[in-house]
Amino acid sequence: MKKKNFILSLTGLISILGLAACSDSSDSEDEIATMEGEQITVGDFYDRAKTDQNNQQIVLDMIISQVFTEKYGDEVSDDEVDQQIEDTFGDEDTLNQQLESSQMSRSELEETYRESLAVQKGLEDHVNLSEDDLNEAWDSYHPEVEAQLIAVTSEDEANEVKDQVEEDDADFGEIAEENSVAPSADNEGTVTFDSATSAEEVPDEVKEQAWDLEDGEITDPIEVSSEYGSGFYILRMNENQDKGEDMEEYEEQIQEIATDNQINDQEFTTQVIGEELQDANVRIQDEAFSDILTQFTDATGNQEESSNSSENSSEEQSTEETENSSE
């Protein structure tokens, strides 16, 4: 399922924890480096660092995380935190290596993920789905299918594989295990997915072609471009299904898709964050950071102006109707 990702990158986590450690253990006059007749203090570093755009983003992330954690943190369970860490790092060995290289503790990592999940909870709390939202999610939904997938890195390889799988008595699963660079190769290329499955698991270009296939049909090579370059996929449909006409049969999935669609909307998230910052009475004390909340305060300000305009319009209309009635 596609969700807006508020989990900060590992680099961001390290930066935030590093700044916190610095503020806890250092005085602004503490020396970082000395040279002939000169010195660089923690204060000097802060004065220079605070104007950097990346560091301003870190401060903004910290403000948003603390505001949402204060209000929604209790709604985040330990199991959810553990699951998010597992989804991000996979096995414990990888996690421990990352923690060691970044000099972070498990508890520090858990706390930061808890804060990010609290933001997710806060956004979900503001979701209000209309009938149109549900219908839009239903129109784009395709139920789960089972297929086999082969991924290769070049068009020539893809054409060769396509020829192999079309031969009489060809074993698609065996060919997938021998040729595919996708994780599914370990399971004869077998994958299950629906329209909401993330593009990282099954590319959107592949899904779009899959819905029209009959059981047993095989696609031509499908080119997929990403930030890492191009790849080619060949898919065999094992078991497709039509969703039918009854949306209630998939009510839970449709609700989740519609919720994700709303949370993924930038205007919605900006508005919600602005409201929460306003409710928490956030005030910037350092002039260097005076503009970091502007996008959110502008959003809430525009909503208030729109609301006031609507109220004034209603009042004017009511007054006019009263006057006309008196006449």
Rank of each mutant, 00 (worst) to 15 (best):
I284E: 04
L8N: 01
M1H: 08
S313R: 15
L149P: 10
S195L: 03
I16Q: 12
L109S: 05
L8M: 15
G244C: 12
D265N: 13
M1F: 08
F6Q: 01
F89T: 03
Q285I: 10
S101R: 04
Q271M: 12
N308S: 11
L109Q: 00
E160H: 10
D242R: 01
E80G: 01
E311H: 06
N187V: 11
A118M: 06
S310V: 03
K243V: 13
K50A: 04
Q83K: 08
M247F: 03
A33R: 07
A299G: 03
Y46I: 07
I254V: 13
Q241D: 09
F232R: 07
K3T: 09
W138G: 07
E115I: 04
Y228E: 13
I234Q: 07
Q164H: 06
D82H: 09
Y46C: 15
G90R: 05
I234Y: 04
L123A: 06
S309P: 15
Q253H: 11
L8P: 00
S314V: 13
A118C: 02
A20D: 14
S314N: 14
L235H: 00
E92V: 09
A118L: 08
R106L: 12
I63F: 09
V181Y: 10
I7M: 12
P143T: 04
E248C: 06
E251M: 09
G43F: 05
S102A: 08
A21E: 10
E178G: 10
G173D: 14
E166R: 09
V119D: 00
I14R: 15
L213R: 02
S105I: 15
D168Q: 09
S225D: 11
E136F: 10
T112S: 07
I257Y: 12
A288S: 09
T190Q: 02
Q295C: 08
I234P: 01
E327V: 06
E108K: 07
Q148K: 09
L149N: 01
G122P: 04
G122S: 01
D163H: 06
L123T: 00
N55I: 14
A147S: 12
E316D: 13
E251G: 14
I257G: 04
M237K: 01
D125L: 12
Q57M: 10
Q53W: 14
N308D: 15
K71Q: 07
Q56M: 09
K207F: 05
N324R: 07
S318V: 11
Q209I: 06
A33L: 11
E245R: 15
M237P: 04
L8C: 02
Q97D: 05
N308E: 09
A158C: 03
I32S: 05
D125Y: 01
S306K: 12
E315C: 07
L213F: 11
V282M: 06
G231F: 00
D286K: 13
E100Q: 11
V191H: 03
E223H: 10
S65F: 05
S105P: 14
T300G: 02
S318R: 14
T270K: 04
Q303Y: 03
M1K: 03
M247G: 02
Q266A: 12
G244M: 06
F172C: 02
E166N: 10
S9G: 08
G18S: 12
L19W: 06
F68W: 10
G12R: 13
F68H: 07
N135P: 02
D52I: 05
A210S: 03
F193Y: 07
E177W: 02
